[in-house]
Every structure is written in C-alpha cells, then in structure tokens.
Design a protein around this nucleic acid. Structure first.
Lengths: 230, 230
DNA sequence: GAGGCAAAAAGTGCATGCAATTGCCTCCCG
DNA sequence: CGGGAGGCAATTGCATGCACTTTTTGCCTC
C-alpha cells in the first residue's frame, strides 16, 4: 500500500503530519490532555506508525504534545499562565530584535524595511486584512533577521510559531489594522534613527498589545472544544 | 533477535543513545560536520535504525546535529559566529531574568538568594573552584526561576546547556573567581533594591564577560567550518 | 582530455511485524 | 465486603524489509 499519499500539500511527508496535527491541536479539534495514540493517528492520516512517531517526537520538541515513556502522548496542556509567559517572552524577544536591528541593520536592510512598511500603508487603507497579515509576518521576520543574531532568531521564530494559533484572529478586531501600522511606524522610525532603546520599547509595546488582544481569543478556544467520536 | 542490549545504564534505550551521542559530540570525539549515517550508528550501538533515527531527531531538536532531508545527518557545525550569537543571547536572557527577578521575586526567594550568595564568599576566599562552580550554577538557576516566567526559563536553560561545553574552563583564569563574586554581588544588590534595570545591566555585563573569557577556549575547536545553509 | 549523462550503489524514508511494558479487569483470599 | 495479586487486552518500542532519493562512478561524446 505504498501508492499515493492521501494528505497532500507539499514538502516532506512527516512534515505535513506535524503541521496537520499541530493545526488540529491549535484549532481545538484535539483538546489539551487528549490522548494521542499512534495507531489511530496512523489510520487517520493513512500512513504507518513510524512517521506518526517521528511527528509526535517533533511536536513534543516544540512543546505542543507531551510524551510519557511507554504511556503514549497527550496534547500538551497550555495553561493560561504559560500562555501569558510566552506572550511576555515574545515581547522581550521582539524588543531585543528591534534594538539590535536599530544598531546593526545594514543600509540595505533599513531601506527595504522602510519601503515595505510604507507600501503596507495601502493595505491598511484598503482594509486588506489577509494581505496585511502576510506583510505583517514579513515585517517581523525582517526585524528578526536584522538583529544579526542567529540564536535569537531561532528562539524568536520558534516562540512566534508556538504562539501563532493564539494570534490568529487579532486583526479581526476593529481598528486593529491601523493601530498595528502606527505601532510598526514607531518601530521603523526608531530604527531609522538608530535609536535602539526606543525601537526596543516600541516593539515591546506592540507585541504586548497584540498579546492582550489575542489572549481573549485563546480563552474562548480553550473553554469548549469539539467532542470526538472513537 | 540481537539478544540483550549492550549499552545499558538506566532509563530508556533511545535516551541512552541521545546521551551517548551528545557526549561524543561535546567531547569532540565526533567532530562538527562529520557525517552521522544511521546504519553505522545502529551497528555501533547494537540497535536497529529506528531508535537511531529517533535519537537523531531529538539531537537535532536541541541543536547538536543537523538533519538534511534525504541527505542524512551531520554533527552541527557551530561556527565562531554562531557561538558568539549564543553568548550574546545568553547575556540578554540573563538580563531579562535578572530584571524580572528584581521585580517579581518573593521575599523568600530574595532572602535565600542573598543568604546563599553571602555564603559563597567563603568559597572565593578558599579558592574552591569546584564548589564555587556548583554554587554558581545554582545562583543562576535562582535567577531563572525568580523571573517567574516558564517560557523564558525554558529558553534560558536550553541556551545555557548548549553553551555548557564552551564554558568549562572559565574559572581557570586567575582572579576570575573573585570577579565573578563581585559581579554576582552587583546583581544581588540591585535585585534587593528592586531595581530591575540595574539588575539586568549587571547580569548582562556578568555574562558578557564570561562569554569573552570562554570564547578563547572555543577557538581551537573551530579549525574548519562548513558552509551553513542560511 | 574534459564534460555530461546514465546507471548502479548507497543511504534515507516509510511500512509492517514482533516483543515488551502498561493499564485494567477479574478472581481469590482475608 | 474490601483489598491485592495475577492474567488479559491494548498500546508502545524496536527490528526488519522494501521503495525512493541522492550520490558516485563509469562510459560515451565532443
């Protein structure tokens, strides 16, 4: 039975599973504490248990699932407290990235940062939330790269990915788009001035606001979740 | 059908492999860039390829090995640059922990921090490097816990463990012991005052100095460096 | 002689099967 | 009637085998 894979998008097979399972976890389809037995998952994704095991290993490495030896894996229980700690960490990490960016970005990086930032103003006027979300991701990625520190980059990207599920609906809030742009503007301005402290503070405030806005949605998702048969 | 396991100490089988391989890596027995093919490792440890794969997965998660899809795994190449970035990250993380500790430590935590710190002064007078090293680890752990932020705690501990091999000989330097204690003293004083900014700055300076002192020892290992994959 | 293409060899990725450990249910004894 | 020990079922952990990707080597052509 080695024909076509049934779950298809692109990339490595097990990588797809990681994304798929992680999606199911963060969307609440799989609830925290729920048991993840390998056989069911293998059947569900039409693969063998081997890639399932590897996927569970990776998911446990990034903290989405918890593995007990010989006792199976469960969806990691992210307490409200731990979630808050991750948002706070994110704010600190972004602050570091912004500060370093202000001090270290090359002229080319500064230029493209400002150009893209200015270009995104149109998206705000149009209210193009999807497009702005894409730009927003790239904007923050520029900050992470601009810090010119590989390890901080890794930690920041990983933390951000872990927080991604809880940050989804942030731009749904009315007026959030424009506020986000203004906060970005404060960061960019500080970076262009080379003012690391101001850039760091602006970034921290920016992320803190996003965290508070997103926390609301996190609570709702955690409260109730879809029941599963089987 | 291979009878008893040959490598046995205690714990899970694959966990032993992780420790064994990680030991070989940090001791330099396996050099950066060296190819780790699963078959050889399986034969070497007298297990099948399956636990080897899982072990490699975990090692890649903690950054000790690098896995290329369909192209095997190699011992992670820690360039001088990347090492510097980790030390810099460590300084920033410790600064955050110290700042938060100054703001959030309970009175009990503050008290025991200062008591232990004062007690360690004796170790400096005696020149007990081993004992001081043990205390030093505990001192920093107190700072990490005192930040009252689970995620920052995780990142800091992980970064510190990744840096451990490069920080070994730091107290060999003459006078380092006394300087370390004085730097600790500055951190403790700031924390007791509740001055987060001062505590953060003192911690950052402290770790930065350690980083510079340790970097010297790391140079020898980095004779040749393979190109990194962006 | 050099460069490119193709085929074989090597090595990874996944599937399947078997052994071992865990949790639970039942039955026996106090 | 309650508690504990033993057996049974279910699930994890590991071994082995096959398919696909990558790399290397040899041959052919220019």
């Amino acid at each position: 039975m080695s024909g076509k894979r049934s779950l298809i998008r692109s990339g490595t097979t097990v990588d797809q599973m990681v994304r798929a399972i992680s999606d199911r976890i963060v969307t609440g389809f799989l609830r925290p504490g729920e048991k993840l037995d390998e056989t069911s998952l293998a059947a569900r994704f039409d693969v063998s248990r081997t890639p399932v095991r590897e996927a569970l290993g990776r998911l446990s490495a990034i903290g989405l699932v918890e593995r007990r030896p010989n006792r199976g894996a469960i969806v990691a229980v992210v307490t409200q407290e731990h979630l808050a700690s991750m948002f706070e960490s994110m704010a600190e990490l972004e602050a570091i990235c912004a500060r370093f960016s202000a001090e270290r970005m090359t002229s080319g990086e500064r230029r493209s940062l400002e150009i893209e930032h200015q270009a995104s103003a149109r998206l705000v006027q149009l209210g193009a939330e999807e497009d702005y979300e894409y730009f927003n991701t790239e904007f923050h990625a520029r900050l992470y790269r601009g810090a010119h520190n590989a390890h901080i980059y890794e930690m920041t990207v990983m933390t951000r990915s872990r927080l991604a599920p809880f940050r989804r609906a942030q731009f749904m809030l009315p007026g959030r788009l424009a506020k986000s742009w203004q906060e970005h503007d404060a960061i960019v301005t500080a970076i262009m001035r080379g003012d690391g402290n101001a850039a760091g503070k602006a970034a921290k405030d920016h992320v803190s606001i996003v965290g508070e806005a997103s926390a609301v949605f996190a609570v709702g998702d955690q409260a109730r979740a879809a029941p599963r048969h089987q």
